[in-house]
Amino acid sequence: MNKFGILAAIICVFASVSADTCDVSAREHLNNIEFVDMKKGCVQLTEDQIKKEITASLKYLSYGAYFSQDNVNRPGYAKFYFDAASEEREHAHKLIEYLQMRGRYFDIQDTIISNINIGQLIKESEQAKALGLDHGWMKAPEPRANGLSAGMESLRTALKMEYAVTESIRNLIIACEAEKVDGKNDEVFNDYHFVDYLTGEFLTEQYKGKRDIAGKISTLGKMIKDNGGELADFLFDQKLQ
């Protein structure tokens, strides 16, 4: 630990005394006012979704890095995937903001949000099997044996990744629209607003994104036919720039 680390540690001791006092007094005034109604199972699944969005962002980042390499040289694809990485990160941010609004960010016991191993997520993103999909196309030798191109293979995997994320959001919606209420066997809680938010904001974006990638695959596929993947990739990359 460097000198400053020690200084910070000392400061933390000072701070914890007063801040605890602040939190306690804040909670005192909210006692007996039941204003938070989002249910635990739904919150935990949302936290899990946040992890998935982060993993997708890191995976897209590695796609961007791949296409930026001097021996791949596809600036258009690189830009597309770097932008996709930041977009996934923004999705994670939006979900956190939602939990904050509903009073459920960092508010329940057994929360996973306080113990996400970020280092581990980064390392897992290196693996070819991140998010249960095969990203091994990045390691494939050129020219590709199947007559495809790196661009095509990346888009196909990206579409599978978007499909997986969409399914995950759909499952989140299903869980949040009929969660059993603790202690009441026959009562379920339908989180109308969150379900509407997920459907309106997230699913719309997912379906638009999937349509966009599927369109790209279709166009590139027609260019590859009878021509060869490399030239098609070269030309399509310019469209993406």
Binding site: L7, A8, A15, S18, A19
Partner: peptide
């Protein structure tokens, strides 16, 4: 806390 976050 606020101070711990800024110090961190």
């Amino acid at each position: 806390t606020e101070m711990a976050a800024v110090a961190k």
